[in-house]
C-alpha cells in the first residue's frame, strides 16, 4: 500500500469546492447558507500542489448552482467547483465574482440607509477599477471586511 493516504474520503454525490483561500471554508459555507449539520468534510490550510495552502470542502448531496458559485466567489474568488455524480466529476468550473450582489451582504457603513429597517435589499456593484472591490450602490462606500458582512 502506498504511503500516501487520503485525509478524507471521496464523496459519491455532491460538490467539492477546491482552492478556497486558506481559512475561508466557513465563510464559504456561510455565504452558501449550508449548515454544518449535514455530512461534509472540511479541510483547513491543506497543502496545495501548486504551493501554499488552501481550504477544501466536500459537501455530500449538494449540487452547487452557477448562482451559488458566484456567491462563493465573493469570499474566495478563485475557488474551483467540482460537481460529483456517482463518484465522477461531471462538471468543473471556476467561481466567478458576480458584477452585482443583492441581499447577500450587509453594508459595512453603519449609517448606510440599507442597514435601516427599510423594504429594500442591500446591493453592491463590483468596481470596474479593481480586482475584488464591492461598492454599495446606496452609500457608494467600499465594503470593508467582506467575509464578515455576509448575512447568515
Amino acid at each position: 500500500m502506498s504511503k500516501k493516504f487520503m485525509k478524507v474520503q471521496r464523496i459519491e454525490h455532491g460538490t467539492v469546492i477546491d482552492h478556497i483561500l486558506p481559512g475561508r471554508a466557513f465563510d464559504v459555507l456561510r455565504v452558501l447558507g449550508i449548515s454544518t449539520d449535514r455530512s461534509m468534510s472540511i479541510l483547513i490550510n491543506s497543502h496545495s500542489a501548486k504551493g501554499g495552502t488552501k481550504d477544501i470542502l466536500k459537501i455530500e448531496d449538494v449540487e452547487l448552482s452557477d448562482e451559488e458559485a458566484s456567491r462563493l466567489a465573493l469570499v474566495s474568488p478563485h475557488a474551483t467547483v467540482n460537481i460529483i455524480v456517482e463518484g465522477k466529476v461531471v462538471k468543473k468550473f471556476n467561481a466567478e465574482a458576480p458584477v452585482m450582489v443583492r441581499g447577500v451582504l450587509s453594508c459595512s457603513n453603519p449609517n448606510c440607509i440599507s442597514n435601516q429597517n427599510e423594504p429594500i435589499q442591500s446591493e453592491f456593484r463590483l468596481s470596474l477599477d479593481s480586482e475584488h472591490r464591492y461598492v454599495c450602490t446606496y452609500c457608494q462606500r467600499d465594503i470593508v471586511d467582506l467575509a464578515r458582512r455576509i448575512r447568515s
Binding site: 440607509i113 423594504p119 450602490t137
Partner: peptide, 29 residues
Amino acid sequence: ETLADTIRMVSGYADAVVLRHPREGAAKL
C-alpha cells in the same frame, strides 16, 4: 414609518421631492 413609505405618500402629493436625510444613500432609496 419607513422612509420608503414616507416617499410613496409624499410623491403622491407633489411634482418633485427635495429630501434631506441623516443616512447615506437615502436619496437613492
